[in-house]
Design a protein around this nucleic acid. Structure first.
Lengths: 189, 189
DNA sequence: CGGCGAATGTTAGTTACTAACGTTCACAGC
DNA sequence: GCTGTGAACGTTAGTAACTAACATTCGCCG
């Protein structure tokens, strides 16, 4: 390290971001599979070991969704009489209007990398287990029993992922429109 | 090999089944992650290299679903006026009554192994990309446009997987009942 | 400045998976 | 029965993601 650092943010947080950014750069340049973990670590200016202390797997460098709790909250606050799928689609629908354009651009970039890497085809689903859990809990709070809540949550997350994937790979696609029609389908048309 | 073989089935098919069976045995005995590919190959009486010539990955030893085309056909034959989610749930619902008990038992065994292995949490979803594609195509034939078909298919498959997972891990669960309520939820209740 | 814990480095190893090339097996025609 | 030919298999050597154990440096507090 050449310069003495500003100490406003923790050291851990800094290297964490450096790693994340280095990974995104290299992935977009050479693709996911053609990029090695050692290579990423090098660009971030740390050792390979440190990389794995920050991210448990290579995949984890791509997947960070901060939207789960927000969606769960929205679902919990839907009117009681709505059926599981209705509450989910409605809750999610209103949340996605609140995300700023910058976050959407980076999200789109990540989705593109994922779509281009065969080895990552199921990565979103695997990652979004967390999202599904959050939504399952939200439904349970509404009185839906566990298995059914799990089914509905998993289904909606999968459908949402599919829609986002399409959006990311289509050149001139409007997110709001894509999402709206996807949620409509999920709600039973 | 000690005995000269009967030639009724091809050599390839025989080792293929030996590998599959050896894997299932070892996975149920020691779990998925504690079982090495070399170990599986050894029990099957072949080299590790041969294992990977038959199965592209370690995961592939577990995943073989022959139900896709049947479900797709059923969906295609649903009445025209049904919405995507309705056609899917109805079509799948009538297919699952036709599967014999033996197939269900082995399916259950496999699902249990998967559920017990953290590394395989998303394996079903990843594998069922094929299933999703088949259902997407079926919906397209019904006049649904591609993105929406993809969303609905991915959602239903994910929900179905979740239901099967619950069924496999619950001691005294009736498949037909579990499936019925899952499909009901997906259809919008 | 001195110390103490957090963050990182180093080394060595395991495991899934691949490439290149040599070897054996099953079955055809002679 | 003998041989040739291609499919199936073995061997060796290697890559890449990840892990464990232990040493080292960094950053902050007294």
């Amino acid at each position: 390290m050449l310069v003495t650092n500003v100490h406003s943010v923790s050291r851990w947080q800094r290297t964490h971001e450096q790693l994340s950014q280095a990974a995104l750069e290299l992935f977009t340049e050479h693709g996911y599979e053609a990029t090695g973990t050692a290579q990423i670590a090098q660009r971030a200016g740390v050792s390979e070991m440190t990389l794995f202390r920050h991210f448990p797997t290579k995949e984890a460098l791509l997947l960070t969704d901060p939207f789960d709790p927000v969606m769960a909250k929205a679902v919990r606050e839907r009117p009681e009489e709505e059926a599981p799928m209705q509450a989910l689609t409605a809750g999610i629908g209103q949340v996605w209007h609140t995300i700023d354009d910058d976050a959407l651009r980076t999200l789109r970039g990540r989705l593109r990398i994922i779509a281009r890497a065969p080895a990552l085809r199921g990565a979103i689903e695997r990652n979004s287990e967390a999202s599904a859990s959050a939504l399952t809990a939200a439904l349970e709070d509404r009185g839906v029993d566990r298995p059914q809540a799990h089914v509905a949550a998993a289904a909606v997350i999968a459908g949402l992922s599919a829609a986002l994937q399409t959006w990311a790979m289509t050149e001139d696609a409007d997110l709001q429109h894509t999402l709206a029609s996807a949620l409509a389908v999920l709600a039973g048309e």
